[in-house]
């Protein structure tokens, strides 16, 4: 029996704007359901928009509902500012 993986890191691409979100969604959803901690590596992210944060908010909420945590790594001021401006700070931290 394969033991459950405790954590996984997903590196977000530099261009996370609307046109690239389909593949990002698929990558996020392909993370095994039993992974307890998912870390989103934001270090390469140059471009993102509200649609990006909407997707991540939905992902954080879904994972939180399964008892998993979604963390971010390499957080950038622009990302935090956007989350605050859109009222999504709590949602992106796994809350609702």
């Amino acid at each position: 029996m394969t033991p459950a993986r405790q954590s996984e890191v997903i590196e977000l691409p530099s261009d996370c704007s609307l046109r690239n979100l389909g593949s990002l969604r698929d990558r996020l959803c392909n993370v095994a359901a039993d992974v307890r901690t998912i870390t989103l590596d934001l270090r390469r992210v140059d471009r993102f928009d509200t649609a990006t944060l909407q997707l991540i908010a939905a992902y954080c909420r879904d994972r939180a509902a399964r008892g998993a945590r979604v963390l971010t790594f390499g957080s950038r001021p622009a990302w935090d500012e956007a989350a605050a401006l859109l009222g999504l700070t709590t949602a992106l931290a796994g809350g609702t």
């Binding site: 609307l18 979100l21 389909g22 990002l24 969604r25 996020l28 959803c29 509200t50 649609a51 909407q54 997707l55 908010a57 939905a58 992902y59 909420r61 879904d62 605050a84 401006l85 859109l86 009222g87 999504l88 949602a91 609702t96």
Partner: peptide, 21 residues
């Protein structure tokens, strides 16, 4: 700012270009 996420679907069925917020 308060975001309302009540219409936000499951991530797997979410269409990225669609605004649910």
């Amino acid at each position: 700012v308060t975001a309302h996420l009540d219409a936000l679907p499951d991530c797997r069925t979410l269409e990225p270009a669609r605004c649910y917020l």
